[in-house]
Write a protein that binds this DNA or RNA. Sequence first.
DNA 1: CTGAAAGCGCTTACAG
DNA 2: CTGAAAGCGCTTACAG
Lengths: 327, 327
Amino acid sequence: MKKITIKDVAKAAGVSISAVSRVFNGYEDISEETQKKVFAAAEKLEYTPNSAARHLSTKKKKIIALVLNEINVTRGVAMPLEILGGVIDSVDQTDYEFMFIPTDRKKQEKKSLLQLAREYDLSGIIIQGLRTSDPYYGELSALPLPIVGIDLALDDLNIGSVAVDNYGASIEVTERLIHAGYKKILFVNGSKEAVVSQTREAGYRKGLGQYKPHVLYADYQEQKAFDLIYEYPDLTQFDAIYAASDLMAIGIIKALIQRQMMNEIAVVGFDDITLASYITPTLSTVRQNISEITKNAVSDVIEQIEEGRVRKRLVPYEIIVRESAQF
Amino acid sequence: MKKITIKDVAKAAGVSISAVSRVFNGYEDISEETQKKVFAAAEKLEYTPNSAARHLSTKKKKIIALVLNEINVTRGVAMPLEILGGVIDSVDQTDYEFMFIPTDRKKQEKKSLLQLAREYDLSGIIIQGLRTSDPYYGELSALPLPIVGIDLALDDLNIGSVAVDNYGASIEVTERLIHAGYKKILFVNGSKEAVVSQTREAGYRKGLGQYKPHVLYADYQEQKAFDLIYEYPDLTQFDAIYAASDLMAIGIIKALIQRQMMNEIAVVGFDDITLASYITPTLSTVRQNISEITKNAVSDVIEQIEEGRVRKRLVPYEIIVRESAQF
DNA sequence: CTGAAAGCGCTTACAG
DNA sequence: CTGAAAGCGCTTACAG
């Protein structure tokens, strides 16, 4: 493939490469005639400035990276895709460049976040899906770089965060269940390492008040949640099950149906994934507004980059009542 | 954020920058001692070669880009995510770099594929989600660059393609329906512009043989498919409906249930999205093996880059019989 | 085995 | 308003 560089355009337009560069960067002090010649030549040659060269020579870079951890774990859960799409759309409306950096445990061990930031001259990072046990998690506080975590509750005041109000939502779910007469509530949590898990569990415990907590862990997996409930010795001690994710709630519903106990136990999930409204019975759950989250994440990193202000932001949730739990 | 460059490492290690570069690029003719000093210095400084500088100065670039069109159209359909994850995993196992380029109509109009390729010095492109009406679609044939389309049936022998055998699958679905006694089959297609739509429809027509085709279009939308079937004047003229996507099939099932006709009409979908096995009745469909598709797409672009061989590849499908159609 | 130097394709003070 | 030149951080023949 033939390379077309700024020199080719300059020659074709009969001007210097400085002139071409200035035209492409929207400088004001360029005669209209030069602009026209440059654009004409560029168009004819299908010229685009080379990204690497531009990045290398430009002073103030404007690149926001979205670092997504473990995106391909669960088939059928489109949340990382929604986040990706949302962040892309938001960044597109600014003059920042977008960069997508998928990661996982192995990659984290090979290259630190700081190295990643240096490698690509990042201006700021939005990161999602981290567990407390991830290498990047420990690195966060020391990072000399604007950073916003999604679903990441760190006390560190230098790290931005945007998350649905997991704590408040869990309190409300629990309290409403209690008010509706469900006082023996089992909480099926994901993993102890996920920050969201901890927060949701804390809300559940808070919401319970005087009532006794019961917590099991199913690692955010439908099958594990199914097994847990299917094999649980004495389910009659519960009248409601609140799961930290819809997928686990669905596993629980299947197990309850098998055990013919769906009528005796209410089930509430979290996320409002697509499946929630398609299964039978339809699933009551807490909806996260992903596009609200991504919009804020982007505007917050930019604010952090440009003004240094760090925000801890909670995005409102919505409780969706469907067939699996009336409360 | 302090920049650490090759100079800092060279100074810290007490060698020239050439030596540092050679060590990082795995050259053989470097004394072990130099290697150790360089690695020690690099580690201490958390140095990583700057990507832009490296790209600019290196001769043979090795970058494979995944261009995904319109990723955020349908909530709950995780296929683009599966493709993304699959391509990332495959590229990770090679010495090529991965780059993600999301696009849409507007972006396509602003920057051509050729310009994109030049901007990032791409070695090869994997592209998915194109419709025949997209600007990039028309550009494909003239692109002087290794390219593999997913779900893209172009006659052009210079463009690689990997796709499930849409034609064969549609023939088999149709023929099996006929053999099972369903001879009045309605085909609900997506859009006329999508290449996959055309291929699936062709298979349907072929499989019908002597029987009469009936085709409607619902733009791959559940709601449109629902409306179409819900309002269709005389459904008794059909005994089966074959939809070009699961999502439309689900809309159709909902409409048939509303009209109390689910028992009289068999429904078959395409894709095997997660929802297919969760709805009631569970959906018979054609499964695409996404990971097989992505694996082949990556190995095919690389083969095209390195050896110039272009493949047109069909990946096997699997017909999944569930409750909505026994055939 | 090692270093000095040219060059990758841009941007941006600087001088005119 | 315009061009020549330095510099961004690397890689890679080249000479030793």
